[in-house]
Protein backbone atom coordinates (compact mmCIF):
# COMPACT_ATOMS: atom_id res chain seq x y z
CA UNK A 1 0.00 0.00 0.00
CA UNK A 2 1.32 3.44 -0.85
CA UNK A 3 0.79 6.53 1.26
CA UNK A 4 -1.76 7.57 -1.35
CA UNK A 5 -4.02 4.60 -0.70
CA UNK A 6 -6.85 5.00 1.76
CA UNK A 7 -5.90 4.62 5.41
CA UNK A 8 -8.36 1.78 5.51
CA UNK A 9 -6.44 0.12 2.65
CA UNK A 10 -9.44 -1.20 0.76
CA UNK A 11 -9.95 1.62 -1.74
CA UNK A 12 -7.78 4.44 -3.03
CA UNK A 13 -8.30 8.12 -2.33
CA UNK A 14 -10.08 8.90 -5.62
CA UNK A 15 -12.57 6.10 -4.92
CA UNK A 16 -13.05 7.57 -1.44
CA UNK A 17 -13.88 10.93 -2.98
CA UNK A 18 -16.59 9.32 -5.13
CA UNK A 19 -18.04 7.80 -1.95
CA UNK A 20 -18.07 11.16 -0.15
CA UNK A 21 -19.68 12.83 -3.16
CA UNK A 22 -22.40 10.16 -3.11
CA UNK A 23 -23.29 11.35 0.38
CA UNK A 24 -23.42 15.04 -0.53
CA UNK A 25 -26.57 16.00 -2.39
CA UNK A 26 -25.85 17.88 -5.60
CA UNK A 27 -22.12 17.09 -5.52
CA UNK A 28 -20.32 16.33 -8.77
CA UNK A 29 -16.88 14.79 -9.18
CA UNK A 30 -14.49 15.99 -11.87
CA UNK A 31 -11.63 13.58 -12.62
CA UNK A 32 -8.62 13.80 -14.87
CA UNK A 33 -5.40 11.82 -15.34
CA UNK A 34 -2.43 14.18 -15.41
CA UNK A 35 1.00 13.16 -16.71
CA UNK A 36 2.92 13.87 -13.53
CA UNK A 37 3.94 11.79 -10.51
CA UNK A 38 1.54 11.85 -7.58
CA UNK A 39 4.13 13.36 -5.23
CA UNK A 40 4.49 16.41 -7.45
CA UNK A 41 0.76 16.74 -8.04
CA UNK A 42 -0.07 16.45 -4.37
CA UNK A 43 2.68 18.83 -3.29
CA UNK A 44 0.90 21.44 -5.39
CA UNK A 45 -2.69 20.57 -4.44
CA UNK A 46 -2.01 20.36 -0.72
CA UNK A 47 -0.17 23.68 -0.56
CA UNK A 48 -3.17 25.33 1.08
CA UNK A 49 -1.53 28.71 1.68
CA UNK A 50 0.03 28.87 -1.79
CA UNK A 51 -0.94 26.94 -4.91
CA UNK A 52 -4.36 25.88 -3.61
CA UNK A 53 -5.57 29.49 -3.76
CA UNK A 54 -4.26 29.78 -7.33
CA UNK A 55 -6.19 26.89 -8.84
CA UNK A 56 -9.38 27.04 -6.74
CA UNK A 57 -11.31 29.72 -8.64
CA UNK A 58 -12.99 31.40 -5.67
CA UNK A 59 -10.03 31.52 -3.28
CA UNK A 60 -8.00 34.67 -2.76
CA UNK A 61 -6.03 33.93 0.34
CA UNK A 62 -5.85 30.95 2.68
CA UNK A 63 -4.17 30.91 6.06
CA UNK A 64 -3.73 27.67 8.00
CA UNK A 65 -4.43 28.44 11.65
CA UNK A 66 -4.19 25.02 13.23
CA UNK A 67 -2.79 21.59 12.42
CA UNK A 68 -3.22 18.58 14.73
CA UNK A 69 -2.25 15.26 13.18
CA UNK A 70 -4.24 15.06 9.96
CA UNK A 71 -6.78 17.66 11.16
CA UNK A 72 -6.45 21.12 9.75
CA UNK A 73 -8.20 24.42 10.22
CA UNK A 74 -7.80 27.34 7.83
CA UNK A 75 -9.27 30.75 7.24
CA UNK A 76 -10.01 31.49 3.60
CA UNK A 77 -11.00 34.71 1.94
CA UNK A 78 -12.88 34.56 -1.34
CA UNK A 79 -12.47 36.97 -4.22
CA UNK A 80 -15.79 38.46 -3.11
CA UNK A 81 -14.24 39.25 0.25
CA UNK A 82 -16.18 36.56 2.09
CA UNK A 83 -14.41 34.84 4.92
CA UNK A 84 -14.71 31.13 5.57
CA UNK A 85 -13.36 29.05 8.44
CA UNK A 86 -12.55 25.69 6.89
CA UNK A 87 -12.15 22.62 9.06
CA UNK A 88 -11.16 19.21 7.85
CA UNK A 89 -8.59 16.57 7.09
CA UNK A 90 -5.38 16.69 5.07
CA UNK A 91 -3.52 13.44 4.28
CA UNK A 92 -1.27 12.32 1.43
CA UNK A 93 -3.55 12.30 -1.63
CA UNK A 94 -6.60 13.38 0.34
CA UNK A 95 -8.20 16.60 1.51
CA UNK A 96 -11.72 17.21 2.82
CA UNK A 97 -12.69 20.63 4.14
CA UNK A 98 -15.97 22.20 5.14
CA UNK A 99 -17.15 25.55 6.38
CA UNK A 100 -20.69 26.69 6.90
CA UNK A 101 -20.87 27.80 3.27
CA UNK A 102 -18.26 25.67 1.49
CA UNK A 103 -17.38 22.03 0.91
CA UNK A 104 -14.03 21.21 -0.72
CA UNK A 105 -12.90 17.67 -1.56
CA UNK A 106 -9.66 16.77 -3.36
CA UNK A 107 -7.95 13.46 -4.06
CA UNK A 108 -4.94 12.23 -6.01
CA UNK A 109 -3.86 8.64 -6.56
CA UNK A 110 -1.27 6.98 -8.81
CA UNK A 111 -2.87 5.77 -12.06
CA UNK A 112 -1.92 2.17 -12.92
CA UNK A 113 -1.03 3.14 -16.51
CA UNK A 114 1.17 6.02 -15.34
CA UNK A 115 0.52 9.55 -14.18
CA UNK A 116 -1.86 10.62 -11.46
CA UNK A 117 -5.62 10.50 -11.27
CA UNK A 118 -6.91 13.71 -9.75
CA UNK A 119 -10.47 14.21 -8.51
CA UNK A 120 -12.22 17.31 -7.24
CA UNK A 121 -15.64 17.80 -5.68
CA UNK A 122 -17.54 20.28 -3.56
CA UNK A 123 -18.87 23.76 -4.04
CA UNK A 124 -21.10 26.24 -2.26
CA UNK A 125 -22.64 24.45 0.68
CA UNK A 126 -26.29 24.64 1.54
CA UNK A 127 -25.62 26.04 5.04
CA UNK A 128 -25.25 23.30 7.62
CA UNK A 129 -26.32 20.56 5.20
CA UNK A 130 -24.52 17.74 3.39
CA UNK A 131 -25.46 19.38 0.12
CA UNK A 132 -23.98 21.76 -2.42
CA UNK A 133 -25.82 24.25 -4.56
CA UNK A 134 -25.82 22.47 -7.91
CA UNK A 135 -25.96 25.64 -9.99
CA UNK A 136 -22.51 26.27 -11.44
CA UNK A 137 -20.81 23.59 -9.30
CA UNK A 138 -19.62 21.48 -12.23
CA UNK A 139 -18.31 24.52 -14.12
CA UNK A 140 -16.35 25.69 -11.06
CA UNK A 141 -14.80 22.25 -10.64
CA UNK A 142 -13.91 22.07 -14.33
CA UNK A 143 -12.26 25.48 -14.08
CA UNK A 144 -10.31 24.40 -11.00
CA UNK A 145 -9.16 21.29 -12.83
CA UNK A 146 -8.08 23.29 -15.89
CA UNK A 147 -6.11 25.71 -13.70
CA UNK A 148 -4.52 22.84 -11.84
CA UNK A 149 -3.42 21.24 -15.10
CA UNK A 150 -1.99 24.57 -16.23
CA UNK A 151 -0.07 24.98 -12.93
CA UNK A 152 1.39 21.51 -13.43
CA UNK A 153 2.56 22.52 -16.87
Amino acid sequence: MTAYASGAAAIDTVARLRVMAAGVRGARVVERVVPAPVERVWALMSDLEGEFGRFQPDMRRVRVVRVAGDRVEAVARSRWGLRARLRGVLRPGWCWLQSRFLIIGMAAAPEPGGGTRVALTGGVRVPGRAAVVPLGAAAELAEAMARLEARLG
Binding site: S6, G7, A8, A9, A10, I11, R16, V19, M20, G23, V24, R87, G88, V89, W96, Q98, I103, G128, R129, A130, A131
Partner: peptide, 25 residues
Protein backbone atom coordinates in the same frame (compact mmCIF):
# COMPACT_ATOMS: atom_id res chain seq x y z
CA UNK B 1 -23.60 12.80 9.16
CA UNK B 2 -27.35 12.49 8.61
CA UNK B 3 -27.73 15.90 10.20
CA UNK B 4 -25.48 17.36 7.48
CA UNK B 5 -21.98 17.36 8.98
CA UNK B 6 -19.68 16.21 6.17
CA UNK B 7 -16.69 15.88 8.52
CA UNK B 8 -18.68 13.34 10.53
CA UNK B 9 -19.45 11.68 7.19
CA UNK B 10 -15.72 11.64 6.47
CA UNK B 11 -14.94 10.00 9.81
CA UNK B 12 -17.79 7.54 9.27
CA UNK B 13 -16.18 6.58 5.96
CA UNK B 14 -12.88 5.85 7.78
CA UNK B 15 -14.82 3.89 10.38
CA UNK B 16 -16.96 1.77 8.04
CA UNK B 17 -14.42 1.01 5.29
CA UNK B 18 -12.63 -1.87 7.10
CA UNK B 19 -15.97 -3.34 8.22
CA UNK B 20 -17.38 -3.28 4.70
CA UNK B 21 -14.12 -4.62 3.20
CA UNK B 22 -14.21 -7.51 5.68
CA UNK B 23 -17.58 -8.52 4.21
CA UNK B 24 -16.99 -7.67 0.54
CA UNK B 25 -13.50 -9.09 -0.01
Amino acid sequence: ARAGNTLAMHDLLDHLTPYIARICV
